[in-house]
Simulated assay, not measured.
Amino acid sequence: MSERQTSSLHGQVAMITGASQGIGQAIARQLAPLGIHLVLCARNVQKLTELSRELALAHPEVQTLPLACDVRDAAQVEQAVTEAQKTFGKINILINNAGVAAKIGLLQEISVEEIDRTIDTNLKGSIYCMRAVLPMMVQQNGGVILNINSIAGKTAYPFWSVYDASKFGLHAITEAVAEEQRGNNIKVIGIYPGAVDTAIWEGLHAEEGPRKEGMLAPDQVAEAVVYILNQPQNVFIKDLTITPLKPLV
């Protein structure tokens, strides 16, 4: 990476949800070497603290702020943004990454609790985070919001109907808010990975999900994030789809 690219991001502040593992953790590890200060949000405080210590040792010039935050709770999201603003005075980048995989099955077989968990995390959580950071970004006259979506946000898969709905909804609000905020120099972008080898598959029976062999690695999605962030201000990548080369069947 060139010095010009590094310096353009150095000193910025990124808030990452679902940062304790998987894609969120990989993104944090790739942003820290660029000199980006990190607000790390997740429910698992212990893992966040361990990641924060790891990054502090490897990149002492980078500040990290680990915060317990369940994105399903709008009040917790608002509090996390307030704490970030108190610490850093700004948030330049929001990465909505927190997400869950819904149980696979016919719609009538999915419990109300599972429906709520999926929609509240994958869709409403991202909405709460965008709503909380946008006033600050508008005041700053700039910012980037990256919503880590899924290929299921563009193609509906049978037996994943509630998950599909959460991701299609995220796709819709990403595009709508992107148009709302163009005049404020705020980019709102969707990233649509195919199957990624993360803990999101835990709890699903082997026959319910794709084989892990050939899945994308979290680092590969994180590299896509870095690529987008390194674009000049006048370049708007509306969305980016990244999938495994071969079908996972």
Score class of each variant (00 low, 15 high):
I104Q: 15
S20P: 12
I104K: 15
A26R: 08
I27F: 10
Q21E: 15
N97E: 00
E50P: 04
H37C: 03
A101I: 13
Q30A: 13
G99A: 09
D70H: 03
V39G: 01
A80G: 09
I36G: 04
K86A: 12
Q85S: 11
I16F: 09
Q30I: 14
A28S: 12
C69Y: 00
Q30L: 14
E54P: 04
Q85C: 11
T49I: 07
C69V: 08
G35W: 06
V81F: 08
V45P: 07
A74R: 10
L40P: 06
I16V: 15
T64F: 02
Q76K: 13
N97V: 00
E109A: 13
R72E: 05
E78P: 13
L38D: 03
C69T: 02
L55V: 07
F88C: 04
V62Q: 01
L38E: 07
Q85R: 14
Q21G: 13
V100A: 05
R29L: 12
A102S: 14
Q30V: 13
N96V: 04
L57D: 03
A84G: 07
N92M: 08
L34D: 02
L48Q: 02
A74F: 08
A101K: 10
T49D: 11
A80S: 12
N92K: 07
V100E: 04
I23D: 12
T87Y: 02
E54V: 00
A80N: 05
R53Q: 15
N92I: 06
R72S: 00
N96E: 00
G105F: 04
P33L: 10
A28R: 00
R43N: 02
L34H: 03
L57A: 06
I93N: 03
K103Q: 14
I93D: 03
L65Q: 08
A28T: 09
L40T: 06
K47L: 13
I36N: 01
Q30R: 15
I91W: 01
A56F: 05
Q46P: 05
K103D: 09
Q108W: 15
S52W: 04
L107C: 14
I16G: 07
A68P: 13
L57M: 10
G35K: 10
T87M: 10
C41R: 04
V62Y: 05
H37Q: 07
T64M: 06
K90M: 12
M15C: 15
N92C: 05
L51R: 05
Q46F: 08
D73W: 07
S52I: 00
T17P: 12
T82A: 14
I104A: 14
E54K: 05
I27K: 09
I16T: 10
G89N: 09
L48N: 05
D73M: 03
A98P: 03
T17F: 11
V45D: 07
E50F: 05
G105T: 04
A74L: 02
A56L: 08
T64A: 08
R53P: 05
